[in-house]
Each structure stands twice: as structure tokens, then as C-alpha cells.
Amino acid sequence: MQWLVLVIVVVMLTSAVAVLLLNDFLAALAALSVVSLGLSVLFVILRAPDVAMTEAAIGAGLSSLLFALALRRLGLWRRRGQ
């Protein structure tokens, strides 16, 4: 369990840095949902199933959908160089 927590935290922090450094907004959004998913797994480990469900549904699901819609409308929905 301890090592699982360590791995999740490291993955979360790495993707959080990636959110800020990736040039491609789509990839950054993917990294942001990785942070949210990691967070919701952590919430399960922390014995907070309600919060984990909410984070998965709202943080990872709905927020990503909102961002995706907005990126598309903002014209950022494409890879670099395309």
C-alpha cells in the first residue's frame, strides 16, 4: 500500500509539471486528467469513496469535457504543426 501511494504521488506530480510544460494543449489536458484520476485513486486509499466518485465524475470526467469543448471552440484542438 505504501509503495502504491508513493507511485501515485510521483505520477501525479510528474503529470502536474507536464500540464504546465507541454506545448500541445490536448496533451496537457490529458496530463490534467491523469492528475485527477490519480487523486481519485488516492481518495479511495484514504477511505473516502464518496469523494473518490465525485473526483472521478467531476474532476476527471466533467472538467475534461468542459476543457475539451472549450479547447475546440478556442481553436486549440489540434496538434502542433498540423
Binding site: D50, M53, A57, G61, L62, L65
Partner: peptide, 14 residues
Amino acid sequence: TPGGGFQGGVILAS
């Protein structure tokens, strides 16, 4: 059980 108005509401919205 875990879950409730907020989680279910998100599913309804989707």
C-alpha cells in the same frame, strides 16, 4: 452507499 446527488447529477447531465 457511496455516491449521491452530486455524482448522480453528473451522470444525469451527461
